[in-house]
């Protein structure tokens, strides 16, 4: 599949944003973060900026962005519509959480309920995003049981990496929060490695024979219907990143998981500027690594339409 930069940016940016927002809601409600105006402002501002720029970016790949509001109407059948609805609904409890935290400097009682609801809606929104891909039967690399856990865990993970930056900047010394960052990085790394392994080993059911309704024989392309690339080949037949897939995967392993994990662990044992530098570098590295991971998620997805253009399996 063609990796449209707007969609890659959207899923990584709003993924991290929803992860951070959910953690703000939970840690705020649990009283693990100080009910301090500036902590609330910084955390919620970061989360909502990432979410909002991501959502905005996702409209850039539309043919008719001015009609984007229509994309929320078909929530009964469409995961994309459900994602749109949930994304908008999440702003409501997030706004209440912000009101309590920033205005009243209170995260207890009803404000805590707003925090929990924010976390739940954030999680549902990310599940909806993942389900958009999970529900597409023509793409085996997405239509499997790894997609939703990977999306939600990587969202929580990139949110936790940002949360580490926040607590270190505000001098909140809480090794439970930093510990969660370490745990989610390790779990995210493990899960994504297993997911990549699954995609390397397994193939979709359709073959060129079932695509043509010809049971027996080795099928090869004799002539294409057209002399230059058409929409289908440009959108579904993307091959550039697959050529460098192994190299990009190593970069993603290193920047997205290994380095942030090591630095986040380090930050648990040191303090002061060293720890702040460690978590900021961890965040930068993780962001780049997850962008590469998302690029591969699209570039390595093989749509069944390729069976009509020379592929024998997908």
């Amino acid at each position: 599949m063609h990796p449209a930069f707007s969609v890659i940016f959207f899923t990584t940016s709003s993924g991290a944003g929803y992860g951070l927002l959910a953690l703000m809601g939970i840690f705020g409600a649990a009283g693990l973060l100080p009910a301090d105006r500036w902590v609330g402002l910084a955390g919620l501002f970061m989360a909502l900026t990432l979410i909002s720029t991501g959502l905005l970016a996702s409209t850039f790949h539309l043919g008719r962005p001015e009609r984007a509001w229509r994309a929320m109407t078909q929530w009964r059948s469409s995961w994309l519509a459900r994602e749109g609805v949930m994304a908008v609904l999440t702003y409501i409890p997030a706004g209440l959480l912000g009101l309590g935290w920033i205005w009243f400097e209170d995260t207890r009682g009803l404000w805590a309920v707003a925090g929990i609801v924010t976390a739940i809606l954030s999680w549902i929104t990310v599940v909806c995003t993942a389900m958009i891909y999970r529900s597409l039967r023509p793409i085996h690399q997405w239509h499997n049981d790894w997609t939703v856990p990977a999306y939600t865990l990587l969202s929580l993970m990139s949110g936790a990496v940002l949360m580490s930056v926040l607590i270190h900047l505000f001098g909140v010394d809480n090794n439970y929060i930093q510990g969660l960052t370490v745990v989610t990085l390790a779990a995210g790394w493990g899960l994504k490695t297993l997911y990549w392994g699954f995609n390397r080993r397994s193939k979709g059911l359709p073959t060129v024979n079932s695509a043509l309704g010809i049971d027996a024989g080795d099928v090869s392309v004799l002539e294409l219907p057209h002399t230059s690339d058409n929409y289908l080949m440009k959108e579904m037949g993307f091959k550039v990143a697959r050529k460098h897939a192994d190299k990009l995967r190593r970069i993603s392993h290193l920047l997205g998981f290994a380095l942030p994990l090591a630095l986040s662990l380090l930050a648990m044992f040191i303090s002061g500027y060293g720890a702040i530098a460690a978590v900021i570098i961890a965040w930068g590295s993780c962001s780049l690594g997850i962008l590469v991971e998302r690029w591969l998620f699209f570039a390595e997805a093989k749509h069944t339409v390729n069976l009509y253009y020379g592929a024998t399996t997908v």
């Binding site: 599949m1 539309l62 043919g63 008719r64 009609r67 984007a68 994309l80 039967r137 929409y231």
Partner: peptide, 12 residues
């Protein structure tokens, strides 16, 4: 139609 292209992804 908003041209999100998702239908073309959903069509095998």
């Amino acid at each position: 139609c908003i041209g999100c292209k998702l239908c073309s992804w959903a069509c095998p």
